[in-house]
């Protein structure tokens, strides 16, 4: 079952839809490991990647995903173009809409901007990150990585650590993990915790040793330095000392706990470089691989719904 018209956030997804998407993504993982990595699922469809905020990794992942499924893919670096000329988001959306795209992948620095855009276009919209709100494909790829590493996506203890307050990844992940019936802990300094976050059914810790105790998954977040107004933490080195993940802190977690990071990493700030590369503990490279598969699955499912919707519409003569 997957009934969505857009993928704007995990908030809107039913647990069963999450499972459907991850099951399909598993198939795409297999496809991506073959020599000939190609499918025709999106043949004839146009995918536009609109990034109003710099991104190399996510944009590349969406681009490869679209190309492997046979879509015509176009990238638009929005921070360099019309936005500088004073065009509003709505006008940009209307202009693009007139070009008949089928899939619109959007990243925007403001929370809710992708929802706004989705109201104004006639195609499927995928949120590739909006402000501090949601980043649904990241949460889905994390879920797939966990499911493959742990053999299940329920009844796990997951610690999300670091800059929760500025992180859309953390929001999408805590919603998804909660929906799939896991126990979520948030660990970080109180200055980087969103207000009243404890009311979201999560446990909040200010100390890594307590927060990581007996967890199955340690999810580290990037310290979003570019988002800092300044003064959230005393210094990088104190942050690394108290919240940076190294072997010593990881020892509080279960022996088989996996280490995740959405990238790009600040080695020596939130995570020890050696640990990040430890193939026995770190699944950071798998996350990148799952990212492509999950995005293929998401676009495939949305395209199916889009085609079904168009076929049901009476033909205008």
């Amino acid at each position: 079952m997957f009934r969505q018209k857009h993928l704007l956030g995990i908030e809107h997804l039913h647990p069963q839809e999450i499972t459907t998407l991850l099951d399909l993504a598993d198939q795409y993982v297999d496809l991506n490991r073959q020599d000939v990595k190609h499918s025709e699922a999106l043949r004839g469809l146009t995918q536009i990647n609109m990034f109003f905020e710099n991104s190399t990794r996510t944009q590349a992942s969406f681009e490869i995903a679209g190309k492997r499924l046979g879509a015509d893919v176009m990238n638009m670096a929005m921070q360099a173009s019309s936005i500088k000329k004073g065009e509003t988001l709505i006008d940009t959306a209307m202009t693009l809409n007139a070009m008949h795209p089928d899939l619109l992948v959007v990243r925007h620095p403001h929370s809710g901007a992708v929802d706004l855009l989705a109201q104004k276009v006639n195609c499927a919209v995928l949120n590739a990150g909006d402000g501090k709100h949601e980043h649904p494909t990241q949460a889905l790829l994390d879920a797939l990585t966990i499911r493959r590493a742990k053999g299940r996506l329920h009844r796990l203890n997951v610690a999300i650590c670091g800059d929760i307050s500025h992180s859309r990844v953390a929001r999408s992940n805590l919603i998804l993990l909660g929906k799939m019936e896991n126990r979520v802990r948030l660990v970080g300094p109180p200055t980087l915790m969103p207000s009243q976050i404890d009311q979201f059914g999560v446990e909040v810790f200010e100390d890594m040793a307590e927060g990581l105790k007996d967890v199955d998954v340690v999810m580290m977040l990037r310290l979003q330095r570019e988002r800092m107004d300044g003064g959230f933490i005393p210094s990088e080195r104190e942050y690394y000392h108290r919240y940076g993940l190294d072997a010593e802190k990881l020892a509080y977690a279960k022996d088989d706990a996996i280490v995740m990071h959405p990238g790009p990493m600040n080695r020596g700030v939130e995570i020890d470089g050696e640990l990040a590369d430890d193939i026995n503990r770190s699944v950071i490279q798998e996350q990148v691989e799952m990212g492509v598969a999950v995005r293929m699955a998401a676009m495939d499912l949305l395209a199916r719904n889009l085609r079904a919707e168009r076929q049901n519409k009476p033909v205008e003569v």
């Binding site: 501090k132 709100h133 949601e134 859309r168 969103p194 207000s195 976050i197 979201f200």
Partner: peptide, 15 residues
């Protein structure tokens, strides 16, 4: 206004 709703929506908020 800071609180559960603003945190969920990821909006900059004031106490």
């Amino acid at each position: 206004t800071s609180g559960k709703f603003a945190s969920l929506r990821g909006l900059p908020a004031v106490s």
